[in-house]
Amino acid sequence: MQRVNMIMAESPGLITICLLGYLLSAECTVFLDHENANKILNRPKRYNSGKLEEFVQGNLERECMEEKCSFEEAREVFENTERTTEFWKQYVDGDQCESNPCLNGGSCKDDINSYECWCPFGFEGKNCELDVTCNIKNGRCEQFCKNSADNKVVCSCTEGYRLAENQKSCEPAVPFPCGRVSVSQTSKLTRAETVFPDVDYVNSTEAETILDNITQSTQSFNDFTRVVGGEDAKPGQFPWQVVLNGKVDAFCGGSIVNEKWIVTAAHCVETGVKITVVAGEHNIEETEHTEQKRNVIRIIPHHNYNAAINKYNHDIALLELDEPLVLNSYVTPICIADKEYTNIFLKFGSGYVSGWGRVFHKGRSALVLQYLRVPLVDRATCLRSTKFTIYNNMFCAGFHEGGRDSCQGDSGGPHVTEVEGTSFLTGIISWGEECAMKGKYGIYTKVSRYVNWIKEKTKLT
């Protein structure tokens, strides 16, 4: 034993070699072989497995989906700052455009905790909710729209109204504003409101030439003092309507412009014939205590009207009353817009006519005020429907199939267009061939041609 100890002390290297040989010859039971080890760690190889990531292109799944990435790591994937920024906006807080917040056709661009709407022409605001041009839906104005110097929408209202708090709607500024039905039992019968379409306001006024200088022999019209197929109006439903009495009662109609003036057809009036105007009328054979009678003290036909040349060209006249009318729910003026808007309103496509005229061709006159909704007829169809001249200051309205029309005794009465609950004068009943005849239409004086003249002559002093 002493000898062994001496050998170990003198030859430590020998001992180490012996131990190493023993270990190498022993069977290893701690580690699995290569094949079995792979069965336990069965993990798919990654895209760049075996390579240094710093030297390969980034992978979106590896960089940002398996674990949260930084902007720089995302930049490695896209290799483009702009594309990385677009991805980053949604990656950080989701897609803010998912709810489609942009209105009126706006395009949404996502941002971090926010979004941006790219608005089409005519709109602005956070969600493109603000109209900035009158060309689109009248700028959301209830009545009139004008573009300011910086191309912003400025709404306005006709006389007797003021802008509401929203700067879009119009509200009454006087007790009985024009064009409004205020009798409670008839307010439910107000005709369907007309909503502004998209309009090209630059070209809204037709490029028409008034044929002022045409000389033409007097034409022989049949029954051209021209509501057939209409309905009984309720008291106060058309408070701007008046009836004219002269040699015979209810020979023509008219509309209240203001307390002192009536507008009617020029062919209705004769110099030297006494005319009485009755406002607030409903049943011409009954006294309903809503009527107001006034005498006409002055007749002003349009300066281009000449019955000797043509009885229905420039067929418009103004009547001055001896005493002002007292405005109330049964006696209310009709609204008159400017030339541009009167023309736009007419193009809405349908209007209402009213009167006490004959209820059928050569038949009896109506006792109760009649009204009828009539569609506008395109000019080409209008011209083809008659052998008589249709001037540019006239328009056609009615039904091709016949059966409904204005008729004798309705002449001078109103053709009105309702705009968001307020009625505007767009025409004056003038003439036609018979009444409600198939293929024939009622012919009306186009008020847009005469609004400046009306307003100039009827100013209240």
Rank of each mutant, 00 (worst) to 15 (best):
L130A: 09
I309Q: 12
T332D: 00
G160P: 00
N38M: 07
G363R: 05
V228C: 10
E401V: 06
G272S: 02
G355N: 08
I40T: 05
R226I: 11
R373V: 07
F87S: 15
G58K: 15
E79R: 15
S187T: 13
G50M: 10
L460D: 12
D378P: 13
E142C: 02
S148R: 07
V202A: 09
R191M: 14
V296L: 02
G409I: 09
R373T: 13
H314F: 07
G442S: 08
I300T: 04
G253A: 13
K311H: 05
D111A: 13
P301I: 08
P101F: 04
H267S: 10
V368L: 08
I336V: 13
W240Q: 00
C69N: 04
L321G: 00
C141E: 00
R140Y: 06
N38G: 15
I300R: 03
N304S: 13
W356Y: 14
S204H: 11
G403W: 14
P172A: 09
G280K: 02
A207Q: 11
L19H: 02
L425K: 00
R364H: 08
R83Q: 14
E286A: 07
Y91M: 15
V296T: 02
T186D: 13
R62G: 10
V174H: 06
I428R: 01
H289L: 06
T287W: 11
Q241D: 03
Y444S: 01
D378E: 13
A173W: 05
G106L: 02
K339D: 06
S169N: 14
M8D: 07
I17S: 01
A279E: 00
C97R: 02
S329Q: 08
P12I: 15
V242C: 03
G439Y: 06
Q167E: 06
C155D: 01
G363W: 06
Q167Y: 09
V77A: 13
P239D: 01
G122D: 05
N222V: 07
P324D: 05
V353W: 03
F345E: 01
M6L: 11
C335N: 01
F221S: 11
N100R: 15
G160T: 10
L383R: 14
I443L: 13
Y115A: 03
P12V: 12
Y47N: 15
N393F: 04
C155G: 00
T342Y: 02
F345P: 02
N151S: 09
G50R: 09
F123T: 08
W431Y: 14
G105L: 05
T417G: 01
P101Q: 05
V202S: 13
V30Q: 15
S107G: 10
Y201D: 10
M437W: 13
A397L: 01
N452M: 07
D33N: 08
L425R: 00
N213W: 04
V242I: 05
C18L: 14
E193D: 12
V374T: 06
H289D: 09
D315H: 01
N42D: 15
I15L: 07
F348N: 15
E433V: 05
Q219W: 09
T225C: 05
T445I: 07
P12H: 08
G421H: 09
T133F: 10
T389Y: 08
W240Y: 03
F71M: 14
F238E: 02
C252I: 01
C170D: 00
T417M: 05
V277P: 01
D322E: 06
C252L: 00
G398A: 05
N147H: 11
T158G: 04
S49W: 09
I15N: 02
F251V: 08
P375M: 10
A308Q: 14
C108H: 00
I300V: 11
T445S: 05
E323S: 09
A436D: 14
